[in-house]
Amino acid sequence: MSTEASELTHNMDTFLKGLWRQNPVFIFLLGMCPVLAVTNTVINSLAMGVATTFVLFMSTFIVSCIRKIVPKEVRIPTFIVIIATFVTMVEYAIQAISLELYDNLGAFIALIVVNCLIMGRAEAFASKNTLGRTMLDALGMGIGFTFALLCLGVVREILGSGSFMGIDLFGEHFQPWAIMILPPGAFLVLAGWLLVFAWWKERQQHRQMAEAAAEQEAVT
């Protein structure tokens, strides 16, 4: 019974760590190019997140299936071909679903192939773990990546265009912050989020230290 329970928490942890504790964008700074480039609106961010999650999930799935057949020396080229295949599929799928979205995302759909997040998960996790855990890990990381894209997309669209998912929020009197939808805005918003998270973490640490000190005082 207890081993079953510990296995369950272990699996939950595999899934959840990608969302926050090991968030690929905010903690590891992986896959930064699309994070900065396509987050000028919420829709673009969401589409990019879903596309990346799909490629990540499918390619780590295949990598995990064939991990025992592929010789060590040729594993990197094999992974690249698998990832490139799924990226090509996604590129044509997006073109078929919405031409407008395809134009907005531009070359960055094809550039999913060089997203270090996918290669990193294939090499560091999928090539060493069972199929089930690989799927959980890929889903967690994918959702974590999408969450980070949305964090940037929401701020940039609301401040830069005064709208949310294309719906006007503030009426005519709002003067949009043009800088937010231009390249510098991406750097500044991401830096802002990192500052907020660092500040929050530091405050938590201070509180823990204060609590520990108070406890010690109570003991003495």
């Binding site: 510098p184 750097f187 500044l188 991401l190 830096a191 990192l194 500052l195 660092a198 530091e202």
Partner: peptide
């Protein structure tokens, strides 16, 4: 400031360079 050390500072500079 301690919270700005590392990536956040680099990104802030990148933003200004980009401008």
């Amino acid at each position: 400031p301690s919270i700005a050390r590392g990536a956040a500072l680099t990104l802030l500079i990148a933003g200004i360079l980009s401008m």
